[in-house]
Design a protein around this nucleic acid. Structure first.
Lengths: 119, 119
DNA sequence: CGTATATTTCCGCTAGTTTGGAAATATGGA
DNA sequence: TCCATATTTCCAAACTAGCGGAAATATACG
């Protein structure tokens, strides 16, 4: 990931409605949620939500597929990983103990630490 | 971390000069870098940089201390951890394999995974 | 006290973003 | 074909952020 791409992702997320949308989709996993259902849950007007989904998609954070009359959106975890990696690249100037709180927080998002991947 | 706080951090980072500044400080570690030195490295005018440092600090991402005539800025890793945790909270709907790329990327930021903490 | 260095504040201008109503487009089913 | 549902596009007004020159503040040192 490079600067411009990271800026695009961060700008897209730096917005109340869009951040709520993205987190909802992160929690929904790869199955995703239909645009209309997202609008209903967030109580957002359809046009506003549509604009927000467009911004997030354009930033590479979401992907979508049509399913009947609905369009299903889901989070792109690969892109998200790139972004987090970019932010913390070469962190701490070789002082791992500084990162301890970070490691602890990430460990709480249970599925995102190397250990469970032994399978 | 809650929504408003996350928005503040993301907005602060969603800016070319500020993101470059923040990453420089992440890589510098807790020792930090003086404002003037940052301006010199980024070739940014002092007033512009000062405004950017103010935004990042107000968002809770930086802290500063005076040292003689200089003001030394450094990244707040605790706040950063909170932000990353907030973004990935309850992710993947119980499908750890989706997070595999994420774990791989984070593992590359060597100091930020639980394993090296065994010490 | 006076001068040099380091950083921040002030100010107005420009450019880009957010918003929602209404209309347009796309799909499914009778 | 015609209608209902689902989503997106268009548009203009209000808002917000970014920018840099110049002046102000703070510290250091002789």
């Amino acid at each position: 990931m490079e600067l411009k791409s990271a800026i695009a992702s961060l700008s897209a997320l730096a917005h109340e409605g869009r951040l709520a949308t993205f987190r909802m989709l992160v929690q929904a996993g790869p199955e995703g949620i239909a645009a209309g259902e997202i609008a209903r849950r967030l109580e957002a007007p359809p046009n506003t939500l549509s604009a927000n989904l467009k911004v997030l998609t354009h930033a590479g954070l979401l992907t979508s597929r049509r399913e009947g009359r609905s369009i299903i959106y889901s989070a792109r975890f690969d892109q998200m990983s790139q972004l987090l990696g970019y932010l913390m690249e070469d962190c701490c100037a070789g002082s791992p103990e500084i990162c301890a709180p970070l490691a602890r927080v990430l460990a709480r998002t249970a599925c995102c630490v190397p250990e469970p991947l032994h399978a």
